[in-house]
Design a protein around this nucleic acid. Structure first.
Lengths: 159, 159
DNA sequence: CACCTCAAGTTGTATTATGCAACTGAGCTA
DNA sequence: TAGCTCAGTTGCATAATACAACTTGAGGTG
């Protein structure tokens, strides 16, 4: 297959995934929407950040994030602390309850992924993971940039 | 990295992709939402089907599909024909305009993917594409949702 | 045929996520 | 101090969606 075909395939498969994800994301975890889940996940990874960071990182409007954050706070999953450095800023952080719920949903999602990926050779899993990281780590939009998470992309994209 | 870590990464990155796709699908093609796009795509692939089929295939409520179909018809992108066998049934089909728009959006998406994947060695593109196909072909419960629609598991051959 | 049941679609209603724009309040700069 | 920028909130509108009730047609069964 040529490069063009490969790109075509990647497009189709990623789109397919997105479509299915969207169609039933809410059904599996009614208590935590896909967006809420990723926001909580981000807070856990980053150890706390500003609402604006979340908005920039996920290409969401700040008003959307503001409302999500309000909801998550009302649900007791996150808390806000005023930044002593800059009183405009609220540093968001997970509460214990938030950490608990997040772990719970993560585990359930992880189990599903494990089931789906069962039988893959470890080498392929690692390569696949690296490709996804590389794909998602796009230059440009979020100055916040996707952190390289785990293992670096093999033969990182430069040419 | 280890298999568990790799699975974890795949989970996170696929989720990340789904989230971004959802967030920006509407921005890129205001004229055709992600759902509309996939519905049109389905009609093109299948060469025409019923609204109920679409609903079942994408795990959408029939009312949702009904409204989407109504909108697409009003936009002149699809048409309906009454099934002579069963007058309850409307067989949906793409119009020429629908085919045109679909091709247009597909092309623009393809271009975006190309841009994003620019600089990847061809070998990596091909491997990535193969992994995605393999992932999506997997039956059973999907982490982000999927229903047993169709298509069996083509051997997990690593090409 | 009359009647019952089921399937395909439509429509009413409510909910949710979202964006844009206007606003508030805090910090920064000339 | 005046003016600008940035973080966050809120008002308003829109779109997608689900659920439930309804309409119409098909298929049986008496």
């Amino acid at each position: 297959m040529g490069a063009a075909d490969a790109v075509e395939t990647i497009q189709r498969e990623m789109t397919s995934f997105a479509r299915r994800a969207r169609a039933s994301a809410g059904r599996l975890h009614p208590e935590l929407s896909l967006v809420s889940y990723t926001l909580l996940g981000h807070l856990e990874e980053s150890g706390g950040c500003r609402a604006t960071d979340l908005a920039a990182h996920y290409a969401l409007d700040k008003s959307t994030v503001s409302r999500q954050v309000t909801a998550l706070e009302r649900a007791g999953l996150i808390g806000r602390r005023q930044d002593p450095e800059d009183h405009r800023v609220q540093v968001l952080h997970l509460t214990d309850a938030g950490r608990r719920i997040l772990a719970q949903v993560t585990e359930s999602r992880r189990a599903a992924f494990h089931e789906r990926l069962a039988g893959w050779p470890v080498r392929d899993l690692e390569r696949f993971a690296a490709y996804l990281v590389r794909y998602n780590a796009r230059p440009g939009h979020a100055p916040d940039g996707d952190r390289p998470t785990s293992g670096g992309p093999p033969g990182a994209g430069s040419r």
